[in-house]
Amino acid sequence: MSTITQQHQTKDILYPPGGILMWIIIYLELLTFGAVLIAMVWYSKDEPELFHQSRIQLNTTFGAINTLFLLVSGYFMALTVGALKIQNITKSKIYLKLTMVGGLLFLGLKTVEYLDKIEAGLTMGYNTFFSFYWMLTLFHVIHVLVGLVILASVLRAMIKKPEELILEDVEASATFWHMCDLIWLLLFPVIYLVF
């Protein structure tokens, strides 16, 4: 059994779970996505019918299933960190792999959705709604891709050098992954359900 290094675990304002830098990034990301979503709602007031007609062309089922993929993936990420805290690397590796499967399933379904939209001619320049749709969801997809690369590097470290694993680094990676959940939980209702 390996020893996982843990440096801080306090209620200190400077040490939120996952690290202060990660939480600053999270708040900035939520602020950015939030501002664009507010702009989207603002623009919808000028063209309510266009936004409604465009929204109903989205596949809400795909959106809901993708929400489930990310949520279940986030659940396994939380279990990964939990297992690591009790030094159970074997379980941690399994949970981390399941986390990544959730992310890959999300990307797979997103690809199907994107191809569907492109085939129907609903590309970025089609109208205001779809400009926002592509901009917001693609930006989120980039975050998921980056998150998967980070998780792959954590998994590699778990397999190759478990003795050098630092819990705070894994927590920071997990926090980034959960951030993808948080962003999606804002995007999904506004883009797929509200208009």
Partner: peptide, 27 residues
């Protein structure tokens, strides 16, 4: 209703999965 439920879901992820409930009250 949809927006309030979304906010509630986001807080559940942050407080439980991200362990924010153990962080300083500021966050």
């Amino acid at each position: 209703i949809i927006m309030i439920l979304a906010a509630f879901k986001l807080l559940l992820v942050a407080f439980y999965f991200m362990d924010l409930r153990h962080a300083n009250v500021f966050w």
